[in-house]
Each structure stands twice: as structure tokens, then as C-alpha cells.
Amino acid sequence: MNDLLKSLNIAVETGKRAEAKRLTQSLVDSGMKPLDIVEQGLVPGMSAIGEKFKNNEVFVPEMLIAARAMKEAMIILEPLLAQAGIKPKHTVILGTVQGDLHDIGKNLVGMMLKGANFGVIDLGTNVDPEKFPAAALEHGAHVIALSALLTTTMPAMKTTVDAIRASTVKGIKVMVGGAPISQEYCDQIGADGYSPDAASAVDLALRLVGETR
């Protein structure tokens, strides 16, 4: 069992998606609990590559390839987790702001958050400002994460933050990211946190919900 978990860690870290799928299925078939597979099989691999990314030891292509290997494994595990009634402690509402269709960076953040045991509700791209607080209310979320890739769509991020603050959802934390975004812009629009990359986004989300790792 430990060998299989170790192999799954390596398969995720090196982006071998067919291998990650096969090993995950083997672990499921052997009767291991789905949550244990996530926590011991997938999370260490994804965390390892996230750390290396922050230290400039690996770069965006490898991160994306690893995240997809994890995604393939999660496709097997997510229905089982739901069946078993496992609910993550914290939920994040994620989306790309109105007028912007880019989602590769946003999807990477989503995968990293899942890898840290967050529940992730992905609203997709070109999301109306009002949909974020509505989804937060519906899912009892703790954090809203906004993405924008274009300088032209940055203003929609501010509109969205304003819509969240004006809504009935209270005490929710808003985090922002995307190529043109900076800490300065984050402060300017009144968001609660900015992260420059997907790996740091996990640390930020944990900090926003009052946990540290």
C-alpha cells in the first residue's frame, strides 16, 4: 500500500497522468478510503511541486502537467468522496471576472486548492459580479478567489469586489490573482489578499481562513 502511495506521489509530481489514474484506481480497488488517497497519495506530490515552483526549481509547464495528472485522479475520487459524505472544512468560490475568458491559470489555482483539501466551486470564466456572492451564500464559502488575465478586464475585478462587499455575505475573504494583478492593485480595490502564483495561492487561502501550514 505504501509503495502504491509513494508511486502515486511521484506520478503526480512528474505529471504522468495515465500512471496517476491507474494507481488511484488500484488504491480504490484495494479498499483504501478516498480521503486517505487524496491526503497521502495526491497532496504530497502536488505540494512538492508547488514548493519547487515557489523556489524557482520548476516552471509553469511542469506545474500544469502535474496539475492535470492530479485532475485525472480526482475524477475517480470526487464522486467517491461525495458518496462518503466527506465535506472539506473550507470552501472557495473561484472564477475569472466578467469580460475575461482565460482559465488556465485559474484552473491551476483550483487544482492546488483541492490539493490542500479546500472545497472548490469553480464558476468558470466571464462571470457576472453578482454570481460570486450568490454562490458564496449557497455553498457557505469562506473565500472568493478572482482571476483576471487582461489589463482590460482588471476593472471588472474591482466591480466584483464592490458587488461582494455590497451583498449580504458578511465576513468573506476575497483573494485576487492573474498576470497584470499586483499587491498594490489588490489594496486599491479592497481585496483581502493577492498571490503571485498558484502555489502561493494555497498559502494565502489558508492564511485567510486562519490556518497555517
Binding site: 509547464p61 500544469l64 502537467i65 492535470r68 475568458l101 482565460h102 482559465d103 488556465i104 484552473n107 470564466t125
Partner: peptide, 18 residues
Amino acid sequence: VELNQAPTFADNFTDCLS
């Protein structure tokens, strides 16, 4: 075609990185 709305683009992008 707006690539970000095409269903296979994200997967193709990851495939084509290698």
C-alpha cells in the same frame, strides 16, 4: 473560434507543452 471557449483547448494546451 474563441479558443478559451473550445472544449478541447485546455487539454490540448497541456498536451502540447511537452
